[in-house]
């Protein structure tokens, strides 16, 4: 009996230790989840950090980091979430967890307006995740990222590829969606982006021309009128012998309008590009929600 006890005591110790370790980590995940659910986000992040410290195992550390990033994303801190995810090494995990992690990284980058980093995560996904079915659900973000980076042709191809991976669609439905995609990505429907530098340069030579090029013809005309009025005041005052008045009230005012007009043209071109992207993305989102 004594020999039995001694022999099996050691077997049990070695076999049960992992159970206790996993149980502790699982209970910490539960605890952190409870805090997050109750809205105590700082405490939840702290408990996930404790898991990272205690776990010593990559999958658990990755899960904890993912949970931290999701909380930060939820509380409108995508840049901090991105910092955490980018600095976490991805080793010793399976493809499904890797795909989820890279998707979250891409999403946080997208929300931080870092579209190049977002696109890079999808390239990593393509390279590191063998099973394409794992990242097909995330194609919608990939397409949005490509459009933000101006890669419309790649976005169109990615959309065509994604509809082929939807088993529930019939051949006719797939064909109809393909036509909609081609129509949306037709060159007439793509955002007509304006170059802010060109807008600024146009306003340099003809005041108001940059605003018109940027898509604000009314403001361009108003701007041109203001310039002409100030020049007229200068000319009128000079004609009647009021030279200093003509310079101060005419030319000095013209100069202020002139330099301000160039900056304004640059800003309006950027604003126009942003609203064009928003409009295009709203059509794209409607199309992709039909796909799902």
């Amino acid at each position: 009996m004594t020999a039995f006890i001694i022999r099996y005591k050691f077997i049990c110790m070695f076999l049960c230790a992992p159970f206790f370790s996993f149980a502790q980590i699982d209970s910490l995940f539960d605890l952190a989840g409870q805090y997050a659910h109750a809205g105590n986000y700082s405490r939840a992040i702290l408990e996930y950090e404790r898991i990272v410290y205690l776990s010593g195992q990559q999958p658990q550390e990755i899960r904890a980091r993912l949970a931290q990033a999701r909380i930060l994303k939820q509380t409108n801190q995508p840049e901090q979430a991105l910092d955490i995810l980018i600095s976490t090494p991805l080793m010793g995990i399976d493809d499904s967890l890797r795909a989820v992690f890279l998707y979250e990284t891409a999403l946080c980058a997208f929300l931080s307006n870092d579209f190049n980093t977002a696109e890079a995560q999808f390239k990593r996904m393509e390279f590191r995740v063998e099973d394409t079915a794992l990242y097909t659900p995330y194609q919608w973000l990939y397409v949005l990222t490509l459009t933000q980076n101006g890669h419309f042709e790649k976005a169109r191809e990615a959309l065509h590829k994604s509809i082929k991976n939807i088993p529930s669609l019939s051949a006719d439905e797939q064909q109809a969606l393909s036509k909609q995609i081609d129509s949306l990505f037709h060159e007439d429907n793509l955002p007509n982006l304006k170059d802010p530098e060109k807008a600024m340069m146009l306003s340099t030579f003809i005041p108001g021309a940059g605003q018109m090029y940027a898509g604000y013809p009314g403001e361009g005309l108003l701007n041109l009128s203001l310039h002409l009025v100030s020049l007229s005041v200068a000319a009128y005052a000079g004609y009647h012998g009021f030279y200093i008045t003509g310079y101060v009230a005419g030319l000095a005012v013209f100069q202020k309008f002139y330099f301000g007009s160039k900056e304004r043209a640059y800003h309006l071109a950027e604003k126009n590009n942003k609203s064009q992207f928003q409009e295009f993305n709203s059509h794209l989102s409607r199309l992709m929600s039909c796909q799902r």
Binding site: F4, Y8, I11, C12, L15, C16, F19, F20, F22, A23, Q24, S27, D30, L31, Q34
Partner: peptide, 18 residues
């Protein structure tokens, strides 16, 4: 007997909740 002891330990470990 070994299996029985393992089941006891596992249950005790899983009993540690949140």
């Amino acid at each position: 007997a070994t299996l029985f002891i393992l089941i006891i330990f596992y249950s005790a470990a899983m009993g540690q909740q949140g």
